[in-house]
Write a protein that binds this DNA or RNA. Structure first.
Length: 633
RNA sequence: GCCCAUGUAGCUCAGUCGGCAGAGCACAUCCUUGGUAAGGAUGAGGUCACCGGUUCGAUUCCGGUCAUGGGCUCCA
């Protein structure tokens, strides 16, 4: 008997004959199938042999989402072509969260156009057109698209090496596509077009700028709504918005783009982070140092930055006929400190750390709040060690990184190991050994990682750690880089046990990356409601009426004397108003002072979430607040 | 840097098809002294980003510059 077995992602399986397998797949919400590792359209089941085992691909899998959204992007292109026949099609892939399609179109698309396109898409979906697959000779396809004036498709076809290509058609709309696609347009239950942006053809700025429409699609309204709610939450947490509302920092047109003003509230948080950072580095046996903001240009020639990194550096300035340069990196300074003395193998490893402020020229279009700026402070360190010490040092750095990131509530990470790129310095053996050392270190710590082949810096392999924030977004912060190049360039050495000079290895590492960026990430991670040890205002003292002012000021004074950051609100306003203000300012504890508190000599304490802790003695409240601070919660 | 959009009060935003510029919040003063997320009244506050052009007249139209935002690319 002719039988086909269907396996679902969850492990569920069923079998059927060729005649009823299609309806079974449909019932199982399959979008496509996978046979022997190859993704295929459901319509291709006719070509399957007896006793085939096929995997049903549903929206739940990454592959399913990709197919689903890719199909939606075709529907969008279809709608755009109908509304704007002069549009030329470029590419329309799925992305992690949705899809996009690039169009070459004279007319500038507007948000109103998006609404029209959405409307037309809904109609196409309602018609439930079948996605039909057609295979044809590549040269025939070129003819076809040439005739249609689709020059971008022709360009793509000219680069494809296969002699046969596949096209997909749905109600007269034909597009070049590898597939597979969902069976018909009707399965797209929920979609939304999100934005219009410019994008270069093939991402190359030498090419023409196209118009890109971003959108997303889900197999039910619920999924889409959840995603839209997520986008909303992202907007609410935007550090630029919260930065203004909480008076944390600002950018200023008169000062310059990408240059940050830290306001008192932001500065308190930064100080708390820095104090923590310095204390912990001292404990971890790093030596802390400071270095200047400018140095002679020759230093950057020696380091190679002037050759390799010039486009990101500010222009040199001439002083007494010598060129000086604003520093884009801290490493040359640390190297000079290392070189200020003769070093023995007994001294290694030497660990230098600095909160070093650097300036890098970033193209104006990439600047973004605190996340991408031109002046920033790196939590930088350089470890000088012997090659056989790399692994142990990297293990220490990994432990340290995890500890620091955990302190800020980051418990989940994605770790990447980047290997040798095409352009590199040092011997392949060096690369091999240090890459292995990084691998061993990661494995020793039981940290799972992915390999980014060829993504290492030219001077050595590296480990990058991306933290996952409370919305599960990944942010690259920490980096650990092995460097064979700079010790060479600066002729760095140490006296070995054999009495001869040897070359140490340098490890560059940053845990938070840049304070500006890390701070921005923290604002979004905590949605502005910082744990108490970071909070600019740890408690607010609110009075019910004016006669309570003296008592309130006394309470605030005693808290301040205990090192608590406290503000009092004696304004002529109702208590509800004051509580609202404190809540909006994300102050965790409000102390309320009225007749009752004054007569009993107590405090009434309210948490920001509305929880009323009732009356308590000053000492009890102090204990509560100090416990939060100590536990960094 | 490039494409597109935006720039009006401290903030969020209306508005002027070219004719003395508006709201809410915030701020100030006064009234109210109120018990857990917005009490009331009055008032002050703007070279409509900047520079130039067209015009009797420009915040509005045109050109340029700067800044911000969404992307492309790059990265901490």
């Amino acid at each position: 008997m002719f039988e086909i077995k269907i396996v679902y992602a969850g492990g569920k399986a069923e079998s059927g004959s060729l005649s009823d397998i299609e309806s079974k797949l449909k019932k199982g919400k399959a979008l496509a199938i996978k046979v022997e590792g190859d993704l295929k359209d459901i319509s291709m089941i006719g070509q399957l042999g007896d006793d085939t085992v096929l995997e049903a691909i549903t929206f739940d899998s990454a592959e399913g989402k990709e197919i689903f959204r890719h199909s939606t992007s075709h529907i969008m292109a279809h709608a755009v072509k109908e509304l704007f026949p002069e549009a030329r099609l470029a590419i329309g892939p799925s992305t992690e969260e949705g899809f996009y399609y690039d169009f070459d179109l004279e007319r500038t698309l507007t948000p109103e156009d998006l609404a029209r396109i959405e409307e037309r898409m809904s109609e196409i979906i309602k018609s439930n057109n079948r996605f039909g697959r057609k295979v044809m000779a590549r040269k025939d396809a070129i003819e076809l698209f040439k005739k249609a004036g689709e020059n971008y498709k022709v360009e793509l076809l000219n680069e494809i090496t296969d002699e046969e290509v596949s096209l997909y058609e749905e109600d007269g709309f034909v597009d070049l596509c590898r597939g597979p696609h969902v069976p018909s347009t009707g399965v797209i239950r929920a979609f939304k077009l999100l934005s219009i942006a410019g994008a270069y053809w093939r991402g190359n700025e030498k090419n023409k700028m196209l118009q890109r429409i971003y959108g997303t699609a889900y197999d039910d309204k619920k999924g889409l709504n959840e995603y839209l709610t997520f986008l909303d939450e992202v907007k609410k947490r935007d550090h630029r918005k919260l930065g203004r509302e909480l008076d944390l920092f600002s950018l200023n047109e008169d000062i310059g783009p990408g240059l940050i003003l830290w306001h008192p509230n932001g500065a308190i948080i930064r100080r708390a982070i820095e104090d923590f950072w310095r204390d912990e580095h001292a404990k971890a046996d790093y030596k802390l140092l400071f270095s200047p903001h400018i140095a002679k240009l020759d230093l950057w020639r020696t380091s190679g930055h002037w050759d390799f990194y010039r486009e990101n550096m500010y222009s040199p300035m001439e002083i007494e006929e010598i060129e000086y340069e604003l520093k884009p990196m801290n490493c040359p300074f640390h190297i000079q400190v290392y070189k200020s003395n003769l070093r023995s193998y007994r001294d290694l490893p030497v660990r230098y750390a600095e909160l070093g402020t650097v300036y890098r020229y970033e193209r104006s279009g990439v600047l973004h709040g605190l996340l991408r700026v031109r002046g920033f402070t790196q939590d930088d360190a350089h470890i000088f060690c012997r090659e056989d010490q790399i692994e142990e040092e990297v293990v220490r750095v990994l432990d340290f990184t995890v500890f620091v990131l955990r302190t800020f509530g980051f418990d989940k990470y994605d770790i990447y190991l980047s290997t040798r790129p095409e352009k590199y310095v040092g011997s392949p053996e060096n690369w091999e050994r240090s890459t292995e050392a990084l691998k061993h270190a990661l494995e020793l710590k039981g940290l799972s990682y992915s390999i980014d082949p060829g993504e290492g810096v030219f001077y050595g392999p590296k480990i990058d750690i991306k933290v996952k924030d409370s919305l599960n977004r990944a942010w690259q912060c920490s980096t650990i880089q092995v460097d064979f190049n700079n010790p060479e360039r600066f002729d760095v050495g140490y006296r070995g046990s054999d009495g001869r000079e040897h070359r140490p290895i340098m490890i560059h590492r940053a845990l938070m990356g840049s304070l500006e960026r890390f701070f921005g990430i923290l604002v979004e991670h905590y949605a502005g409601a910082f744990p108490l040890w970071l909070a600019p205002v740890q408690t607010a003292v609110l009075t019910i009426a004016e006669r309570h002012a003296d008592y309130a000021l006394n309470v605030a004074g005693r808290l301040r004397a205990e090192g608590i950051r406290v503000e009092s609100d004696l304004a002529n306003e109702k208590i509800g108003h004051k509580i609202r203000e404190a809540t909006i300012r994300k102050i965790r504890y409000s102390v309320i002072i009225g007749d009752k508190e004054v007569s009993e000599g107590l405090l009434s304490v309210r948490r920001r979430n509305g929880e009323n802790l009732g009356s308590m003695a000053f000492e009890d409240f102090l204990g509560l607040i100090k416990a939060d601070i100590k536990l960094r919660r």
